[in-house]
């Protein structure tokens, strides 16, 4: 995994038993979610019981990393020292399941070129033990 030399300062998530798989998943370039083995529902954030069918048979599975842009905002306010503005914050929906969403950053494209509904794919930025899932336009 290539580390970008100009990556911003990010406040990292505190890892715990429920989220460590998610934030370290990008070590091999792949995104993972917890998934119910009985009904197939992807669960995010992770819970020990499937909210759809209440099964406890839950495993971590790799997803395609492809997503759709649901909404975005270009942030101009310097909330966090070391995180250069402007930057794009978005909510994306993974193609695997309606409602399987992440808040993330869209990178590699000017905000003016973003269109709600456009296809995206994941890429990771690594910090210490954490791999931050970011999204960029899917190459057509």
């Amino acid at each position: 995994m290539l580390t970008m030399p100009d990556k911003p300062f990010r406040i990292l998530p505190r890892l715990n038993a429920d989220n460590e798989f998610f934030w370290t998943s990008g070590a091999d370039g792949k995104l993972r979610f917890r998934r119910c083995q009985d009904c197939g529902y992807y669960i995010h954030p992770a819970t020990p019981i499937c909210p759809e069918c209440l099964s406890k048979r839950i495993e971590t599975e790799v997803v395609s990393g492809r997503a759709t842009l649901l909404t975005f905002t270009e942030n101009h306010q310097p909330w966090i020292p070391g995180f250069p503005t402007p930057y794009v914050i978005a909510i994306v929906e993974m193609v695997e399941q309606e409602g399987l969403r992440l808040t993330t950053n869209i990178v590699g494209v000017p905000a003016e070129e973003l269109v709600i509904g456009m296809p995206l794919r994941v890429k990771f930025e690594s910090y210490d033990d954490v791999f931050i899932p970011l999204f960029e336009p899917e190459l057509q």
């Binding site: 911003p8 998530p13 975005f72 966090i80 995180f83 914050i89």
Partner: peptide, 20 residues
Amino acid sequence: SWTLPFGAASAANWIALFAQ
């Protein structure tokens, strides 16, 4: 933990996403 790593530090960002 799901927003701050992306610089989505404020309800201004979270609500802006709804507005958009």
